[in-house]
Amino acid sequence: MTSSETVDLRGPPIPKPPVHQQLLNSVPVAVAIYAGVIGVIVYGSFVGAQNMGYNWQWYRVLQYLYSFTDDGFQWGEIMLALPATIQLSVLSFALATVLGLFVALLRLSGLVVGSAVAVGLLELIRNIPLLVLLYLFYYVMGPIFGLDRYVASILTLAVFHSVLISEIFRAGINSVAIGQWEAAKSIGMSTGQAYRYIILPQAVRIMLPPMAGEMVHLIKSSAIVSVIAVAELTTIGRNIISETYMSFEIWFTVAVIYLVVILILSIGVSFLERKYAVDQ
């Protein structure tokens, strides 16, 4: 019911929550508490840094974000590293999605061998630390198959996330009612056609939120490739720090950039979710 007409309410009113709870939940009080907590953390960090004699040099950070030279506006080193992180993440995510769908279909195929292979893969990869997987791809598979560091990084991220994505696909596909399969089959569709035209389009709606979560997870875990010196945000941050010794400022800056990128992504996804919800 979406009607907003006023209704004549009868019966006893619902009792209000206790006074202290009302007070804590009122907007000004809530904002004040929030600001207070953040303030204590920030102040504590500054005082702590001061006591260890840290020399804050925020004014030097800006040049790594952007600068104005004789040639006009120019992005700084950190901002130039951001596209590398995004490219790495997008390529890995695309490959992970394809692999994930394949593993999910294998698992759901009804073939004993298929599901055994899928479960084996899932347990194997899910239970190896990401860092170890990266070393395996770079130091072991790399020399064997001639993978450079960038390819090794993409493969590591894609393989690691593909098994997690396969579980999202499996849950999404299983969430579509069995009657949809029966209806698709009874108009003569093959299994492939039923997946493509009937089941997957419905599964995607359910998969969207967890897939967005997985993309966020992947962007964050992409930072790990800095240990094999693939040029991306975290690696560049490390390089700058080794030249300037501004570790506090640069790490804060890098963290904020990750945060902003992921927040933008989240907003985009919630927009998509609303759009799909309206269509139904």
């Binding site: 209806a183 108009i187 003569g188 569709m189 709606r205 269509d279």
Partner: peptide, 20 residues
């Protein structure tokens, strides 16, 4: 089976229309 199903229509208790 698929050739058969093209000749035999089925109407279900729960309709099973494609909601998307």
């Amino acid at each position: 089976v698929r050739r058969l199903r093209q000749e035999v229509g089925m109407v279900f208790q729960q309709f099973n229309l494609f909601p998307h």
